[in-house]
Design a protein around this nucleic acid. Sequence first.
DNA 1: TTTTATTAATTGAACGTTCAATAAAAAGAT
DNA 2: ATCTTTTTATTGAACGTTCAATTAATAAAA
Lengths: 205, 205
Amino acid sequence: MPKVGMEPIRRQQLIHATMSAIDDVGLAEATVLRIARHAGVSAGIISHYFGGKDGLLEATMRQILTDLSNAVAARRRILTDNSPRAHIGAIIEGNFDRTQVTGPAAKTWLAFWASSMHKPMLQRLQNVNDRRLYTNLCHQFRRVMPRPQARNAARGLAAMIDGLWLRGALTPEGLDAEQARTLAHAYLDQLLSPETVQKTAQTWV
Amino acid sequence: MPKVGMEPIRRQQLIHATMSAIDDVGLAEATVLRIARHAGVSAGIISHYFGGKDGLLEATMRQILTDLSNAVAARRRILTDNSPRAHIGAIIEGNFDRTQVTGPAAKTWLAFWASSMHKPMLQRLQNVNDRRLYTNLCHQFRRVMPRPQARNAARGLAAMIDGLWLRGALTPEGLDAEQARTLAHAYLDQLLSPETVQKTAQTWV
DNA sequence: TTTTATTAATTGAACGTTCAATAAAAAGAT
DNA sequence: ATCTTTTTATTGAACGTTCAATTAATAAAA
């Protein structure tokens, strides 16, 4: 059976099987045996390719975060309009990308998020990703409002995006991506409207 | 050592110890031994009072949800103003109540939320709570805008509240409750402003 | 003396990891 | 072109550990 060059194939299979297992039974019951069975290989192979279960989980989280990051970057690269609204809109669209929002990825993402509170390596990955989202949003808002307001707008929109994900991951039917995008865009429109910018300038100096 | 009437005392001690353990090491490593040690009793007592570990976890989640629900209800009961804004404001305030937002409760809440995706009993509790928040918000928004807009406003505000919680639970410093309240209220003001109501009426019929 | 409250020791199952064995594929030798 | 050796990929069983639950024993209170 052994053919050469299996490493990249097996790694992908196992990462994919990990997401499926977490989608099926949750992180707590996603054992190496179950993941391996799902990928059609033996349990020992996980230690061989990832050094152990922890290595596989870390690789899976890395995959999800880079996929998300790529989805955002791709949408920003094809923009014709350079306005803050267009850039932030692309960030929203990327975050509610089809491949991210569907079943396994969404549940896995939430499971890792909860777990990252007590696993330093996952926390680090989470933090890098979080900060990138916040920094990007802040930078774009900064182009049309003073820094303190830009910071609050970025915090608010980041919370809205995460909240929509969270609630989407929990409902049995999964996230309604179109509805989520609509709500996020509506909130963005409010944040960028001249009346809001002026009003919040007085509230939050 | 045995004194009569220990049951309610032990139950409270163990529920509190469960939150502390989850706060310290996460749900995955919150073993019965660790929880019992934290409460200063033996591990066997958990099965005695809660029928097993699952019973204790369920009781702990129940406690958190009823505390949250009580915090909201208390703030609404003392309102002098009967406006939708006042009621929704009280809901926001209750959700960012001191006792809910601090360390153990917040981390435990997030841990259970993630876990509830695959444990039917927790999912049921979660669902009841979610629906109550949504229904309450919807009912208040309904007083000042048509139903489709009220529904979207409720979805948006619920997502914002959960997103702020989520991000707060993950940051090492914990949730900045005041900042969270400020952002949620600012969003509420936007949702209730006449311009927004009129604008969204055209977008979402 | 019976009941209530609790513990400490034990049990059995499940888990992740390791390791020797195996078999196909590739490389080298004839 | 055929045979031999080495390398790569994989398995399955065994090991040690950890966990939740159970049990028998103990001690205070009623």
